[in-house]
């Protein structure tokens, strides 16, 4: 009958960690114990199966997903977008201004013309319309960090120059519009010159640990050589912008899917 304390000896025999002499003595001491022999056999069978187990390997896709998931937890926070304001609320100040101007113009016309005609009143409408457009533009929420370029030189204007790169070298564009992204795409060469964005190859990516900074870098790299452009918030979604070969592609940080219309 095996005693409880014999299991260490049985395990040692099964593991083959004893010298030949010790092994022989130990096995002899268990010979008269049927339960011990059974246990020894079970230990050997288990060890044989375990030692023959296939190694566990993460696939490249799983590894990329893991890196992306962990990096996403600690990625630098993108600028919080301003709360969306319904279009009619945005236009309300402009409409009020337009209404006030109409009153002023109307009253002025009456005072100057001594009453005037319906036609003359209609002629004042374009003036009111101009005022409406201007006031409506002023009423729109300010776009922070929008990409702007000098039309004559193609160089980024002071607004873009004011965008400081983050500690990682990745620019944060704040809340911008799809049109801004399109502008970045259209003026990429000038932008890169100003920005000093770097182009990375797969080997660089490994050494720079870039994928921990830019969440979707590995996904983008699957498409070709990448140039990191930056991050932004578009319509409330955090995005990462890359130039891949000769195309600009924008990835949603949430799942690294390509953002329309940049697919």
């Amino acid at each position: 009958m095996m005693h409880e304390h014999d299991f260490e000896l049985i395990a040692a025999i099964a593991e083959g960690g004893l010298s030949p002499d010790e092994q022989a003595v130990a096995e002899a001491s268990l010979a008269s114990c049927e339960a011990c022999s059974t246990d020894l056999q079970l230990q050997r069978e288990a060890l044989e199966a375990l030692r023959g187990a296939a190694p566990v390997v993460m696939t490249d896709l799983e590894r990329a997903g893991l890196h992306r998931s962990v990096a996403a937890q600690f990625a630098p926070a993108v600028v919080k977008p301003k709360p969306a304001v319904p279009w009619f609320q945005r236009l309300m100040p402009a409409m009020a201004a337009a209404a006030a101007l109409l009153v002023v113009v109307g009253v002025g016309s009456v005072l100057i013309d001594g009453g005037g005609s319906a036609d003359s009143a209609a002629e004042t409408t374009p003036v009111a319309g101009e005022s409406l457009r201007t006031a409506a533009e002023e009423a729109l929420p300010e776009v922070s960090g929008g990409a702007e370029f000098d039309a004559s030189t193609g160089a980024p204007t002071s607004t873009m120059a004011a965008l400081a790169p983050t500690a990682s070298g990745i620019r944060e564009y704040g809340s911008i519009s799809v049109a801004d992204l399109a502008e970045i795409a259209g003026r990429l060469d000038a932008f890169e010159e100003e920005d000093g964005a770097n182009t990375y190859s797969a080997n660089d990516l490994e050494s720079l640990q870039l994928d921990s900074v830019m969440v979707c870098a590995e996904i983008a790299l699957d498409e070709g050589q990448i140039t990191v452009i930056g991050r932004a918030i578009v319509d409330g979604d955090g995005v990462e912008i890359y130039r891949i070969n000769d195309l600009v592609k924008v990835y949603l940080i949430s799942d690294c899917s390509l953002m329309d219309p940049f697919e």
Partner: peptide, 8 residues
């Protein structure tokens, strides 16, 4: 030890 035995 007990895990190996159960496994086997």
């Amino acid at each position: 030890f007990r895990g190996r035995r159960l496994l086997a």
